[in-house]
Design a protein around this nucleic acid. Structure first.
Lengths: 236, 236
DNA sequence: GCTGTTTGGTAATCGAGGTTTTCACAATTT
DNA sequence: AAATTGTGAAAACCTCGATTACCAAACAGC
């Protein structure tokens, strides 16, 4: 047991195979699409037999879940490291850093957002759960930075939970568009837009500035003053 | 040809079956999930034979595409009608109306956002294309309103394309979270957050206010001034 | 009421892909 | 050098679900 083959340890060979399978998965899931990718195709591309495939993964979904987790973990790692380097900078710098590093990490390869925001959606209950966990993590990150900004007086003191979730959604939507758009969108533009949106969302005052020539109309949009109702039952 | 069965015209019967199949599809796709839903299950629930199924649809995906299109069309209809009713209101009112009616339409039933933003993602190239068309339409809608606001001096005069796409993403992300969240999020909160985010995103000035105590650092966030770089190759 | 025609349900077929198993080989150890 | 064991390729299997074809039933005309 545990015999060295071809000069490399057996666990090293296993790890290599696993890695090649993941690479093949990333490639095929984002070109052929997850649904249409066959396990045998993945094995062929990775130069791995089906037997070894089942030694590493329980099926296609397992590969997808692993990739999804990896991409998010990688981004989280980069962002955490970068934020540590600007530990005592002002709130705006930290927020901009968080966003820029995230965008940079995830746009080095269009297959990354494609896998994360298109292929890994609606596949299984477990994957949806995993997605939600990650949204939660990213939202918490943003929330923390927003609270930090509030503590420094750079943003209002309020609950940032939903704002954070919305911002994660904005990033997701924009990146999904980015990887699908023809002709390709400039990454700088996407990054700039998200940066501005994020700052505007966090720094926005509790009340929007008054619009001239709108007498009597409540402009306090934080309250649930609603205009132009027309149908649609209200749901608790 | 064209014979009346059971007192109803054949095309009426066909339409009824189609409708029941769509209802069954909506129900099963959002509970069992699209992937795991079998055509025979759909037929059983709809009280329709498989033969009649293939008379109406080419397969599962056809049902999904139809539902996806319907939900978006319905929302678009409602929003268009509501905007017509506030045709000469101020920009803020119109934007708030657009958003509120959209949210109201799509949250009457949690299955609607579930189907649109989870189950219909990453299924096929055609569906992705259809998704992009709808994102485009919604973004154009928002863009138009933003330009209108700019024309009235309520917002800066700039390109709102990416802002609009990001806002569509924010709505998508928030609704995806809404339909999945346990315990359920209050719809009012989601609507309020999106309303505020949308207004903040559109009305935001070109430059963010100066942060005191940050000497030398460029605060013009519209320019591609980047902080905290650490890795990640730049991509054209 | 009987017949021909249209519609609907059921059951059999067909194919595709996932999963397992077998067999041959290579490398290492005694 | 021979035996042993881990390893990989490929084929066989086997399940499952989409699709179609056939048969039964219902209705209008004669």
């Amino acid at each position: 047991m545990a015999r060295t083959y071809g000069g490399v340890a057996p666990e090293q060979r296993r790890a290599d195979r696993r890695e090649r399978l993941l690479a093949a998965g990333l490639e095929l899931f984002t070109s052929t699409g997850f649904r249409l990718t066959k396990i045998t195709e993945m094995c062929a591309r990775a130069g791995v037999s089906t037997r070894n495939f089942y030694e590493e993964f329980t099926g296609k979904e397992d590969v997808l879940r692993t990739l999804h987790d990896r991409i998010n973990s990688l981004a989280l790692e980069h962002v955490t490291a970068a934020l540590d380097q600007v530990a005592d900078a002002d709130a705006v710098t930290r927020i901009v850093t968080l966003l820029d590093v995230f965008i940079d990490t995830v746009t080095v390869d269009p297959r990354l957002p494609r896998l994360n925001y298109v292929e890994a959606v609606g596949v299984s209950a477990e994957l949806e759960e995993q997605h939600q966990v990650w949204v939660d993590r990213w939202a918490s990150f943003i929330e923390t930075e927003a609270r930090r900004a509030a503590a420094h007086g750079a943003a209002p003191d309020r609950d940032y939970r939903l704002t954070a979730i919305a911002l994660v959604g904005a990033a997701t939507g924009l990146l999904r568009e980015w990887q699908a758009h023809e002709p390709p969108l400039p990454v700088e533009d996407v990054g700039a837009e998200l940066r501005a949106l994020m700052l505007a969302a966090i720094m926005r005052p509790g009340k929007i500035l008054e619009i001239p020539g709108n007498p009597g109309a409540p402009s306090g949009v934080e309250q649930s003053s609603r205009a132009g109702e027309q149908g649609g039952a209200r749901r608790t």
